[in-house]
Design a protein around this nucleic acid. Sequence first.
DNA 1: GGTGCCATGTAACGCGTTACATGATTAT
DNA 2: ATAATCATGTAACGCGTTACATGGCACC
Lengths: 199, 199
Amino acid sequence: MSVRFAVLGLLSQKPRHGYELRAAFSALVGGDENWDVKPAQIYTTLNRLCLAGHVALSSISQDGGPEKQIFTITDEGRRILKEWYESGITPEHAHDEFFIKLMTALVSGDIEPFRLIQIQRAHLYQDLHAATTIRNQYDPRTEMAQILLMDKSIMHLEADLRWLDIAEMRLEVVQNQPFPEPEIKPRGRPKKTAPRKEG
Amino acid sequence: MSVRFAVLGLLSQKPRHGYELRAAFSALVGGDENWDVKPAQIYTTLNRLCLAGHVALSSISQDGGPEKQIFTITDEGRRILKEWYESGITPEHAHDEFFIKLMTALVSGDIEPFRLIQIQRAHLYQDLHAATTIRNQYDPRTEMAQILLMDKSIMHLEADLRWLDIAEMRLEVVQNQPFPEPEIKPRGRPKKTAPRKEG
DNA sequence: GGTGCCATGTAACGCGTTACATGATTAT
DNA sequence: ATAATCATGTAACGCGTTACATGGCACC
C-alpha cells in the first residue's frame, strides 16, 4: 500500500513522469539501499491509479530528450490521499517472521527454542551495531530521512532484543511442563461484540 | 515467506491435510484474530511446495467423512526448513507505512508533520492500552503464543512511540530551516565495497 | 430441512520482484 | 564506439486476499 500512496503524495507536490517518480521515491526513503522500487512497480502502480481515477496522464513532453508521460493527481486522488494522512496506522506484529519461526519450532520440536533465540539475538546485536554506526555517519542537515530511518531501526531492534529476553524467561518457566499442543478450536464460531475472555 | 515455512514445520511434526494445516497455523499464531490464513493460501502454498519437491502427497484417507489429501515433508523439505531455523532474520523497518507517510508529507507539504505525528501517537496509545489489557487476560499455562504475541506488540508499540518523540525533536530542530528537497541522485553509479560516506 | 462444520479447490486481483526488451541521448 | 543514463514498458511469478463453488456429514 505504501508505494501507491507515496506516488500519490509525490504527484500531489507536482506532476511528474514515471522515471522521475522512481528517483523521488528513492530519495524519500533515503536511497535505494533501503527500498529499491523497481520500474515495473512504478509503471503498474501508475496504471492502476489511472484506472482508479486517482491520477491522470496530463501531457507528453519531449524537450530534446526521450518522450515523457507526465501524470497529475485528480481531485479524487487528493481526497483519498488526505484520508490516508488523517488515518492512524496499526503495525502488524503478528506477521513477524521470527515469531512464526519460534512458534513453529515449539510445535514441531525440530529445534530447541533457546538455540533459536540465541541465533536471533546474535543476529540482532550485529544489526544494531551496524545501524548505530551508520546513523552516526549521516548529516542531520541534509540526510534527515536516513537518520530517522536508522532511529526507527534502532528502536525496533532494541524492542526485538527485549522481547527475546522476555520470551526466554517465559519459556524457562514452562520448560519443565511439556509444551501443550495448542488447542485447535473450531472455526467460525459466533462472534459477539467482544468475544475475548468474558466470564 | 512465513506461511510457507510454517506449513513445512507443521508437516515436519506429522503429516497433515490442508484443512488441518489451516487450523494448526491458526493455533500457532494464537487465533485467527491475529493472522487468519485463508484456505486459498494453504492450498496454493501446498501446490507450490509440491512442485518444489519440499512436500509430497502421501495418501488419501477417508474415515467415513470426506476425502482427505495427506501431505508429507520430503528430505529436501527438511533441509530447507533446517536452513530457515539456523538463519537470522532482519526485520524490514524501511517498509513501515507511517515512515513513508511522514516522508511523503515532508516532501509534498500537504500536511504538517507534527499533526501527522500527533494523529499517529494517539492511535498508538490506544493500541498499546488495548494490547496490555488483552495480554493480562491470557492464561500463561495454555495461551503462551497469545501472550508472547502481545509482549511483542507492546515492545514495538513502545518503540514506535519513542521514535515519534525522537522524530518530533529532530524535526523541531530543522523546522525553521526549509526542508531541503532530498537530492535525487543518479541511479546505478558504480558500487565499491563500501559506498558509504568516504572522503 | 436448515445451519454449521469438514474438506477441497478455482479465478481474479493487488502488491512486489525478477527478468527481459526497446530506443534515445550524453559523456568518455 | 561503447557505456551510462534517461525513459518506457511487458511477462511471469511469489505471496496474500476476496469471492465463488462444490460436496458430505452431523445435529437440531
